Simulated assay, not measured.
Amino acid sequence: MLETSPPEIFDCQSCGACCAYSADWPRFSMESDEELAAIPEAMIAKDESGMKFENGRCAALTGEVGKHVGCAVYLVRPHVCRTCMPGDEECKIARAEFGFPIDGLPEPEIYEA
């Protein structure tokens, strides 16, 4: 966790596992043509199915996994990235892949429609 983060809040910027655990994620699913156009072409996979995965991580991931990371396209990131929450199943799978602990993760927020 970053020193500036309150200890009761999980800080995704000190993890980044979800952005580096699989070449098959993140995939585009619900993005409009306008949303896809906002993502730099150099960061999109050649088959245009999702974000480019290079050097074992999403091309938009900056920093060092497990230390301090960020997203170069955070404001226009794919829907799947927007819905991944600390403590949800995707988070736990990604963290386990890196050997990061999953104990102490917050319960994902559940939104009722």
Rank of each mutant, 00 (worst) to 15 (best):
M1H: 10
M1N: 08
M1D: 06
L2K: 10
E3R: 11
T4L: 14
P6R: 14
D11R: 08
C12Y: 09
Q13P: 00
S14E: 13
S14H: 12
C15I: 12
C15M: 09
C15G: 08
C15A: 11
A17K: 04
C18N: 06
A20M: 03
Y21P: 01
S22E: 00
S22C: 02
A23P: 13
D24I: 00
W25N: 07
R27Q: 06
M30D: 06
S32P: 03
D33W: 01
E34Y: 02
E34N: 05
L36C: 10
A37E: 06
A37I: 01
A37L: 07
A38L: 14
A38C: 10
A42R: 15
A42E: 15
M43Y: 11
M43K: 11
M43H: 12
A45F: 06
A45D: 08
D47A: 05
E48D: 00
E48L: 01
S49L: 09
G50V: 06
K52L: 15
K52R: 13
K52I: 07
K52H: 14
F53C: 11
F53H: 13
E54L: 13
N55P: 03
A59Y: 03
A60G: 08
A60D: 08
A60S: 09
L61N: 03
T62I: 15
G63A: 10
E64R: 00
V65S: 03
V65Q: 00
G66T: 05
H68P: 00
V69Q: 00
G70M: 00
C71D: 07
C71W: 08
C71M: 06
A72D: 11
V73E: 12
V76Y: 04
R77S: 03
V80I: 12
V80R: 11
V80M: 15
V80S: 12
C81H: 04
C81Y: 05
R82S: 13
T83A: 03
T83D: 11
C84L: 08
C84Y: 04
M85K: 07
M85F: 09
P86Q: 05
G87S: 07
D88W: 04
D88A: 05
D88H: 08
E89P: 02
K92Q: 11
I93W: 05
A94G: 04
A94F: 06
A96Y: 02
A96G: 05
